[in-house]
Amino acid sequence: MSSMLSAELAATCSALGYFDSKAKKYFADSNTLEAVKDLIRYLRRDDSSHAIRRELGESMVLQTDLLPLLKCYWEETDLFDVLLRLIVNLTTPALILFDEEVPTDKTARNHYLQMEEHLQSYKEAFVDDDVWAVLSTKLSQILEIVNLLFFYSSAAD
């Protein structure tokens, strides 16, 4: 990966916000929504070596920024939606990204193993009860809406 692209990724990750350990709260930047969208765009442009995905894994952006943002700003629907899209994208199994075959080429295999290592660290980050509380609350809200739609459509019949 070029140093220019690496610098762009670092700047984009910095634009997400910061965690205040005293307040135990993540403070979003004014451009957080756009920064998350930019990270999604970067992943869309990723090459076959998955350099961008590996760089984001190395920076631990999921653990240090994305999950804390999700926990603190889950009520902001637009931000929550794009955050969830990015998190799902980053947690895509490495095997799927390599066409369901473990690479035999030495370099590609090292990239694969590096991505597997990042995925394992993501699993550790998802042990947080607060993340699951947010996800279950959002899922409950969605199910309530679906239930209401089903109720009203059944009543109309």
Rank of each mutant, 00 (worst) to 15 (best):
D99G: 06
E100Y: 12
E100G: 08
E100R: 09
E101F: 15
E101C: 13
V102T: 08
V102A: 01
P103K: 00
P103R: 03
P103I: 05
P103G: 09
P103F: 08
T104D: 14
T104F: 07
T104R: 05
T104P: 09
D105G: 05
K106G: 04
K106F: 08
K106A: 14
T107D: 15
T107E: 15
T107N: 13
T107L: 14
A108V: 00
A108G: 09
R109I: 02
R109Q: 06
N110K: 03
N110Y: 08
N110G: 00
H111N: 13
H111T: 13
Y112T: 10
Y112I: 11
Y112F: 08
L113I: 10
L113G: 08
L113S: 05
Q114Y: 01
Q114I: 12
Q114L: 13
M115Y: 06
E116Q: 09
E116R: 04
E116I: 13
E116D: 01
E117L: 08
H118V: 14
H118N: 00
H118G: 04
L119M: 06
L119W: 01
Q120C: 14
Q120S: 14
Q120M: 14
S121G: 12
S121H: 13
S121R: 15
S121V: 15
Y122F: 12
Y122H: 09
Y122P: 07
Y122E: 04
K123G: 13
K123N: 14
A125I: 10
F126G: 04
F126A: 02
F126H: 01
F126Q: 07
F126S: 03
V127M: 01
V127R: 07
V127F: 06
V127I: 12
D128S: 07
D128W: 02
D129G: 01
D129A: 06
D130H: 04
D130K: 06
D130C: 01
V131K: 08
V131A: 06
V131D: 04
V131N: 06
V131F: 10
W132Q: 11
A133S: 01
A133K: 10
A133Q: 10
A133N: 02
V134N: 01
V134R: 08
L135G: 00
L135T: 09
L135I: 06
L135V: 11
L135E: 09
S136D: 05
